[in-house]
Design a protein around this nucleic acid. Structure first.
Length: 483
RNA sequence: GCUCCCAUCGACUAGUGGUUAGGUCACCACUCUUUCAAGGUGGUAGCACGGGUUCGAAUCCCGUUGGGAGUACCA
């Protein structure tokens, strides 16, 4: 049984990159028939953001990612918030002390800064200097005991051997070799009693029975440290898979500085969950490469960590928008209308008849990528034409156009209310054009202008049908009288 | 600086020793057509570079270059 975890830190709203990490974890466990755990890594009290945890859960649910265990659902290996597990970490840090694979240190932040500065000046790699700083080794056991008993602030650091190498294995990158002398004696337990990420992460992954750690590439450099910690505990490490980073156009890590990067931002901008999920899934992984649209089910079926790419992927908004359009067209009119209703009200169109909204959506869905484009794209369907494209008028309104339109309008008026449909309308218009021996376009363009004010839109006959006889006739007449 | 990771069209990618290097977005053209889309057809465009290994390298090895990440009592 595989067990994976999504372990975000509540330092802000859910990031789009984090959503992809969650997604890959989800696809992996569903593919392998395992369990997905949500764990909140809130060990940094200074960066804690209220509401972040709720956002994670809501956004994942919006995207269709479900957890099997977590702070809101519970489970056998909780609690699932690290801030509620401090006692566990303290105990485990002490276990390491007993195993002599960790040690007490009493240095202040200032002393450490000074150490680093010294090292930098001397051109040495900045790294905790066990032999010159104030710790268990330099102070001796007796002094250490005395300080501890006296309640002096201290940390617990990992004892990393100065010699030898640590070999790491990664499911997407295979093997790497790291020289131990370059690995820092990482602080495991901070002086405030909270663990660092490194300690909490290893302890929890072990205690929670995690078999596969799937996380971002930014963790790759600390992987050897984590392997050493598993050795320090005498535990078997899980499998690791480090995901390629999502990059901005400058090929840098996609971050808050790039604008809207939280999942919520994408929700607000009107992206459909299906489209966003499909899109980010393909950022670093590709099931077949013969097409772009995959259902959640298909993704689960074909997901393999071994098939995940190694290189970072640039986030291409153009393709996302295109994909949103693809999904929008696949969606049922009912669903689209549901999404549209609040947007119509926001645009000032109150009490729009659902039947009318459906008809409009049916007409324009091929031409838009976002539901929120509808109120603007087809504003003439929900209220009077606000403005007329003058350039369009100049281009399409010729000598005699007005006379032809007057005549056409009276012929349209002749259509029975019950026969007011695109087919009938088309017959009248084409018939008249034929009589005049002109192309139908010569009538259709002026019609489009007077009825919608715009030069782009859905098919004219269908538009007139949906608009209704009364409005159609009225608008044509209005336009003729004013121009 | 140091450590590690990475390298196929502008972007996302397929490709794991023998392919005219394939698909998708974007772009261009044509088509359809009442406009705009969508659809259809076609096109521009890529294996970073240099050495090897091999009968044969996008594919394997080494180096160079370039890019990225990490280098905290942050995650």
């Amino acid at each position: 049984m595989t067990r994976a975890r999504f372990a975000p830190s509540p330092t802000g709203m859910l990031h789009i990159g984090a959503l992809r990490t969650a997604l890959y974890n989800f696809l992996f466990v569903r593919h392998t028939g395992g369990k997905l755990i949500l764990r909140i890594e809130d060990t940094d009290r200074t960066r804690f953001v209220e509401g972040a945890e709720k956002d994670f859960i809501q956004m994942c649910r919006w995207a269709g990612i479900e957890f099997d265990e977590g702070p809101d659902i519970g489970g056998d290996v909780g609690p699932y918030r690290q801030s509620e597990r401090t006692e566990i970490y303290r105990k485990h840090a002490e276990m390491l002390i007993e195993r002599e694979t960790a040690y007490y240190a009493f240095d202040t932040s200032e002393e450490l800064d000074a150490m680093r500065e010294r090292q930098q000046k001397a051109g040495i790699v900045p790294k905790y200097d066990r032999s010159s700083m104030r710790n268990q080794f330099t102070l001796g056991d007796e002094e250490t005991r005395r300080l501890l008993d006296g309640g002096v602030e201290h940390t617990i650091r990992l004892f990393v051997p100065l010699t030898g190498e640590t070999r790491t294995h990664d499911l997407v990158r295979s093997e790497s070799l790291f020289a131990n002398r370059l690995i820092d004696d990482q602080i495991l337990l901070k002086s405030d009693g909270f663990p660092t990420y490194h300690l909490a992460n290893i302890v929890d992954d072990h205690l929670m029975g995690i078999t596969h750690v799937i996380r971002g590439e930014e963790w790759l450099p600390s992987l050897p440290k984590h392997i050493i910690m598993y050795q320090a505990f005498g535990w078997e490490p899980p499998e690791f898979a480090h995901l390629p980073l999502i990059l901005n156009k400058e090929r840098k890590k996609f971050s808050k500085r790039d604008g809207d990067v939280s999942v919520e931002d994408f929700v607000v901008k009107g992206y459909l969950p299906e489209a966003l999920v499909n899109f980010i899934a393909l950022l670093g992984w590709n099931p077949t490469a013969d097409r772009e649209i995959y259902s959640f089910h298909e993704m689960i079926e074909s997901f393999r960590l071994e098939k995940v790419n190694k290189a970072g992927a640039i986030f291409d908004n153009d393709k996302l928008d295109w994909m949103n359009g693809m999904y929008l067209r696949q969606l049922s009119v009912e669903r689209l209308v549901e999404d549209l209703q609040p947007l119509l009200e926001k645009a000032g169109f109150e009490n729009v008849d659902p039947g009318h909204a459906s008809a409009v959506v049916e007409l324009v869905k091929e031409r838009i990528n976002f539901v929120h484009e509808v109120p603007k794209f087809a504003e003439y369907m929900f209220g009077p034409v606000k403005s007329f494209d003058e350039e369009y008028h100049t281009k399409q309104w010729k000598e005699g156009t007005s006379d032809q339109m007057w005549e056409l309008n009276s012929r349209l008026e002749g259509i029975d209310e019950g026969n007011w449909n695109s087919k009938e309308i088309e017959g009248v218009i084409r018939g008249y054009a034929q009589e005049l021996e002109i192309s139908a376009g010569k009538l259709i363009h002026p019609l489009r202008l007077s009825l919608t004010g715009k030069r782009v839109g859905a098919g004219m006959f269908e538009t007139m049908e949906v608009l209704g006889k009364e409005k159609t006739i009225g608008r044509i007449q209005d336009y003729l009288e004013k121009h």
